[in-house]
Amino acid sequence: MRSFFFAIICVAISIVAFAQDTKSAAAKPFHTYIYNKEYMVYLDLNLYDNDIKVPGQDIFGNVLGYFGASRDSRKWLITSAKLDGTNKASLDIINDYGSEDLTATLTYDPKQNTYTLRQTGGSRLKIVVSRKWVKIPTEITLVPHERVADMW
């Protein structure tokens, strides 16, 4: 009987914790980790607090976020962002060498729980796969995901 009550209490606590997590995600949709399975790329960002560290590249300090790939150690850093309402952000992005930059918009769709990254100008996002450059499409859909460890 005790274990039954203990199980009920654990379930209730997890439901409350999940509800609070969902509520905070809706309130701050641009503090997230999102992933695209097809290209194995992700965005780790917090456009509110500027507190993201690029793994293995501490020289950059805290940034708004970065675009990375599971199969490539290079990163594209978000250098500035402007929130356009609650579900859209305009981004300025630069590669980690500083030789290429681009502008993009990131739009959150709360009904589908997806994000659309649309490159609007400048260089194309690209990653290296099997020693060849792969251009990322100018519009790509990403979904919330648990953090993926880089191979590097």
Rank of each mutant, 00 (worst) to 15 (best):
L83T: 10
I127D: 06
D44I: 01
T79C: 07
K126S: 15
L102S: 07
D21H: 05
S80Q: 12
I94G: 00
V54L: 09
R2L: 08
A7I: 11
Y35S: 05
T120P: 06
Y66N: 07
R74G: 15
D101S: 15
T103D: 03
S24D: 09
D49I: 04
Q20W: 11
G98R: 06
Y115P: 09
S80H: 08
D51Q: 05
D49H: 12
L77P: 05
D58R: 07
T22A: 09
N95Y: 04
Q57N: 03
V63E: 08
W76G: 02
Q119D: 09
A19R: 07
S99D: 15
Y48T: 04
D109K: 01
I9M: 14
P55Y: 05
W76P: 01
R2I: 09
K82H: 04
S99L: 15
S3N: 14
D51C: 09
T86A: 15
S80K: 13
L125E: 08
A89C: 07
I13D: 02
A7C: 12
G56A: 08
I52P: 03
R2S: 12
T79H: 01
Y48R: 04
Q57E: 15
L125F: 10
Y115G: 00
K111I: 11
I52M: 10
N36Q: 05
F67N: 10
K111C: 07
Y97K: 13
P110R: 07
T32A: 02
E100G: 06
R2T: 10
D21K: 14
K88Q: 14
F6L: 11
T79F: 06
R71P: 00
I8A: 10
S80W: 00
Q20V: 10
V16A: 14
A17I: 14
F67V: 06
A104P: 09
F30N: 02
S99N: 09
I34F: 01
Y108M: 04
Y35F: 14
V128M: 13
Y97V: 08
D109W: 03
S99M: 09
F6A: 15
